[in-house]
């Protein structure tokens, strides 16, 4: 019984989350650098709120949503039954032990496996939520290592504007400000490109998507 009920619940829950996110954030998807096509991609975005991957997922057309799996921290999304249900069944998230925790399996493995199965990923290369005034934290190496193992996959920078204002860290009630999700032009790892050079380039590509409206914001 639960075998059928669980996926059904997950689908209903997903619809509800999409509708709720649209209402609260009025999210607008801006496809500036690429089209919403079903090519295999790693969407890498700035990270300021737990709702970030929900926002990207909502901004994707329904046909692209199913194959786009968010990468999320296991420590947060394994805690509690509801979170686990949302992460595993609703979003089919790839849960990873975040870097720096030492002993566990390499966090790259589950992501690389998903890419090997032809799926797309939603990834936050800053590794943790950015709650300060700097627009971006330094990128972790995961994006580079994935790009090396799957050099054919498009790396699409995605700038999320305002979600950190809708629901800042530590707050419970969202303020209904408007959010936007800007998709930039895809990058690929160049031949013989060093890790540092690649990460700097990826970071610059993401920074370049900052909308003019937030340029004037405190930084």
């Amino acid at each position: 019984m639960t075998r059928f009920l669980r996926p059904l619940c997950a689908r209903l829950f997903a619809r509800a989350i999409v509708i709720f996110t649209h209402l609260v954030t009025g999210v607008q998807a801006r496809w500036d650098g690429c089209a919403p096509q079903p090519t295999q991609r790693i969407y890498f975005a700035n990270h300021a709120s737990h709702g970030d991957f929900v926002l990207i997922w909502t901004a994707l057309p329904p046909a692209l949503r199913r194959s786009a799996r968010p990468v999320a921290g296991a420590d947060y999304w394994q805690a509690g039954g509801l979170r686990r249900f949302i992460a595993r069944d609703v979003f089919e998230a790839v849960l990873v032990d975040r870097e720096g925790r030492g002993c566990g399996p390499d966090p790259i493995e589950p992501m690389a496996r998903a890419l090997g199965q032809g799926q797309s990923l939603i990834l936050f290369p800053e590794g943790t939520r950015n709650t300060g005034d700097a627009p971006l934290l330094p990128f972790k190496s995961g994006l580079y290592r994935l790009a090396r193992r799957h050099p054919k996959v498009d790396l699409v920078p995605v700038w999320l504007a305002n979600l950190n204002r809708v629901l800042p860290k530590g707050e419970v009630l969202p303020v209904p400000l408007l959010c936007s999700v800007t998709f930039g032009a895809p990058l690929k790892l160049r031949a013989a490109e060093s890790k540092e050079a690649f990460l700097t380039r990826a970071q610059a590509a993401l920074r370049a998507l900052t909308p003019a409206a937030t340029e004037g914001a405190p930084s």
Binding site: G26, T131, P168, E171, V175, L177, G216, A217, P218
Partner: peptide
């Protein structure tokens, strides 16, 4: 409600304004 969210989206509010914004909206 729709107009206020458009207006405040373009302002410089910070984390410290969260309660004030909640009070304005709700």
């Amino acid at each position: 409600l729709a107009a206020l969210r458009e207006f405040l989206t373009l302002t410089h509010t910070r984390r410290g304004d969260h309660w004030a914004l909640l009070a304005a909206f709700f």
